[in-house]
Amino acid sequence: MLSVLGRLGRAVLESLARLGRWFVFMLALLPALPSALLRPRLIVDQLYHLGVLSLQIILVAGAFVGLVLGLQGYSILATYGSAESLGVVVALSLVRELGPVLTALLFAGRAGSALTAELGLMKSTEQLAGMEMMAVDPLKRVVAPRFWAGVITMPLLAALFSLVGVFGGYAIGVGLLGVDSGSYWSQIQSQVDFFDDIVNGVLKSLVFGVAAAWIALFEGYDCVPTAEGVSRATTRTVVNTSLAVLGLDFIMTALMFDV
């Protein structure tokens, strides 16, 4: 009994300590961010790793989500005889929610985990310490460019996800189920608002980008520099990012689309 309590207490203390270190990391990284923008070469390299290499999974997932939305949306809407509204259902659910959220979740699994593992490995092989000894600040040279790349990548990936999804819904609805092509687009055009939906969706994915990059980089930077430590940190990245994204999504949805 006591040992259970003891372990629980230790776990709580450990999480508090991690939260504290996370905050310290955040404060240390902030001043390193602006100067990293002056070295686009480093950011471009990271855009490749985080963005280009995530394209495949994002496009495929977006297409399938669109197809499923098309099928499900049609079967519900058809019972009310308003299958023409299929476009709106597909587009709004993608642009407002599924695009930013699913992209962020996929990003955590595909790119966030890779970031953590890379940084953890650099730490455990003394590469970060080596840089420090060469008078190079790893926060500026390694962490900041990755952070920027993550923040830039996320809205672009989310936009691609949503767009591909809308086409997926189109393929099912118009191509297979006989919804009128003009109605599909005209309904979208008349119902999807630029500020309420598109801008808010982009804002969401920007916030998710910040959160995902921050968590992944922190876990890598903070990990215990051993094989096991790196693997644990990678797992934590995926779990924590997913939770953070879902939580933030709830908060932002409540604020943006005020009910």
């Binding site: 650099m122 092989t125 003394e126 590469q127 310490a129 080596g130 420090e132 000894m133 060469m134 008078a135």
Partner: peptide, 29 residues
């Protein structure tokens, strides 16, 4: 530190760079 060089016991080479870029790293920075 710019006036110090250190050879780490385990090398601590940057694994994402080539041999050339590793040696060039301090010069470029």
């Amino acid at each position: 530190r710019k006036r110090m060089g250190m050879l780490f016991q385990h090398g601590a080479l940057l694994t994402d760079l080539s041999v050339f870029e590793n040696v060039a790293f301090p010069l470029r920075e």
